[in-house]
Amino acid sequence: MAYSQESNRVNYSQLGLSFVIPNQWQGSEVGDAVLLQSPTIPGVILISTHNQTLAQLKAQANQTINDNQGTYLQPMGSIESLNSHTIARTYQGTLEGNPAQSYIITLENPTGGIGVTILVAAQPEQFSEEIKKAGIALAASFEFTKVDRSSELAEWKAWLSGWRLTYMHSYNSSGSADVGIYGGISAQRIIDLCPQGNFNFSGKSTVIMDGMAPNSGNSNGNGIWEIVLGADATPHLRLTFSNGEVREYKLEFREEKLFLNGERYFRTNDGDNDPRCF
């Protein structure tokens, strides 16, 4: 986070965006987001990124937000249009298990890059016009600059095209010598990325507990693959299955190893480990 004390403007050059922290608010990075807090105004403001279009944002704004982990926010009133690229809506419910009123502002990036979501939240009895105005002022301060990441995405595509990606995991426990309890799990996923732009996916898992018959599961699929910029502004492998399902994997290459969503994958294209392409 490049931060200018004089102007309160924060610049994320890699994402092509910058914003001004409102007066009486202080910012800190929390994971892939920026958290703003004020010593005098109850509540929080959380800034995160997305890769949705305005049409997709409007459709999502009509839906209940439920992460099955304590956040359940229902939309209230109607969608507000703050400008040609920004919408907002009020929500009420719980946030991480706590009662909350929220005002969520979403900005489409007019340059076609990563957009922004601003979550303004406080306990229902503490939600004020003051915190709402701070969120609106923050949204109005955003400036977007077009960032060309096409060469980076093309490099990933060329490096993965025509290769098989394989994930393997196994764990076995002998258990206690007294009671003889044991178990194990094994899993394998194979993604064949064909040069024509199609892919083949196969996966299987087996779970064994205390000598019981193995519980196995298998999945297969095919569709189209591409390299895109994820909501966290890093390259992602996107698999669009023929049934409409979409999966995204964050791509990383560190210590000479390939990782998808933090899991180690082997990259092969020889002999029995050739990708299955037709």
Score class of each variant (00 low, 15 high):
M1W: 08
E129I: 02
T111D: 03
T106V: 15
G162V: 00
T145F: 10
S186K: 13
G175C: 11
N215C: 08
F127E: 01
D232F: 06
R189M: 12
G97N: 02
Q14H: 09
Q188P: 03
P110V: 02
G135K: 03
I185Y: 15
E256I: 06
F241V: 06
Q74Y: 09
R264C: 08
M209Y: 15
D272S: 10
R254N: 14
Y265H: 11
S48F: 04
S170K: 10
N51G: 08
Q196D: 15
N23Q: 12
T86A: 09
R189I: 11
T40R: 13
I224M: 12
S216V: 12
G217C: 09
L160P: 00
A140W: 01
S7K: 00
E143S: 12
I131H: 01
S4D: 15
Y72M: 08
Y249I: 05
T94Q: 10
S4K: 05
M212W: 14
N172R: 15
D32M: 13
E256P: 04
R238P: 03
S38N: 04
A134L: 00
A139W: 08
N215G: 12
G221A: 07
Y182E: 13
Y265E: 06
I131N: 01
E226I: 04
Y265Q: 10
L165R: 06
R238W: 03
A2G: 05
E143N: 15
L153C: 03
T166H: 01
P42R: 07
N200F: 15
R276L: 14
S205Q: 14
Q37D: 04
N172A: 15
G175M: 05
K250C: 06
D148I: 00
A213M: 12
G77N: 05
L73E: 10
Y265F: 15
T145L: 06
S13L: 07
E152T: 09
P275A: 06
P235C: 03
L239I: 05
G135E: 00
D32P: 06
C194F: 08
L82C: 06
H236Q: 09
E245I: 13
Y171H: 13
L46S: 10
S186A: 15
A140Y: 02
D274R: 14
I191N: 07
N83D: 15
G244D: 11
Y249V: 04
S18I: 02
N23G: 05
I65T: 08
G97F: 01
T268K: 08
S216K: 12
L251A: 05
F199Y: 13
A140H: 08
D192Q: 11
P124D: 00
